[in-house]
Amino acid sequence: MIKVEGLRKSFRGQQVLRGVDLEVPTGSITVIIGRSGGGKSVFLKHLIGLLRPDSGRLEVAGVDLSRLSGRALDEVRKRYGVVFQGGALFDSMTCRENVAFPLREKLRLPAPEIDKRVDMALERVGLAGIGAKYPEEVSGGMRKRVAMARALVTEPEIVFFDEPTTGLDPVLVNAIHRLIRELHRASRFTAVIVSHEIPEIFEIADRVGMLHEGRIVEIGPPEVIQNSKNPIVQQFIRGEPDPQA
């Protein structure tokens, strides 16, 4: 369970998060939607411990992340898998070495076990056989899949996806969403996805939260969000122009 209470963050006097409250139930897929520049990525960076809040509580499995640093924070991070927006694959390594890296360095498994797990991970994301290629030699969609394989190969309890389908065509968007759903069914991890793929993302979400101007303005199952009376939510879902813009 992830529990966020009153999370606030400012950069140079500009408030980005203005008191975010959110609960992510264990084993669920929770999607955070919202306009670009609305603080989604900043919020995600707090969840994965890359940013510290100015105030508020950020609890992961009962531990307040905002008070941790160094090794204590790393202990929490060992339960994480993160799929970054651009994949964040190490470009000096092949795709296979990228997937093997956390097993070798984080879990320090023996080489035969690493080989076995990497083969399985690449197969799960439909990329068996491309391991010898470097990230720059594969397509954007493949890079995202390799990033997913790397994030999931350590069998984390919580997986964060930062806009996992940005820059992909509609066919690939659906394919990645299906893949997330299948991987979730197989591993039952807790997933937090930051996305603005509307309405496709509703198909895989258990809960959807709308982050607007630094606050969660509405949260609930996809059908509740889709039928929300909140004009901000409706405007975003329908892709209507912002009257203030």
């Binding site: 411990g49 890359l50 360095e105 984080k106």
Partner: peptide, 8 residues
């Protein structure tokens, strides 16, 4: 960042 969140 990827290295950091891997606790490395």
């Amino acid at each position: 960042d990827a290295l950091t969140v891997m606790a490395l």
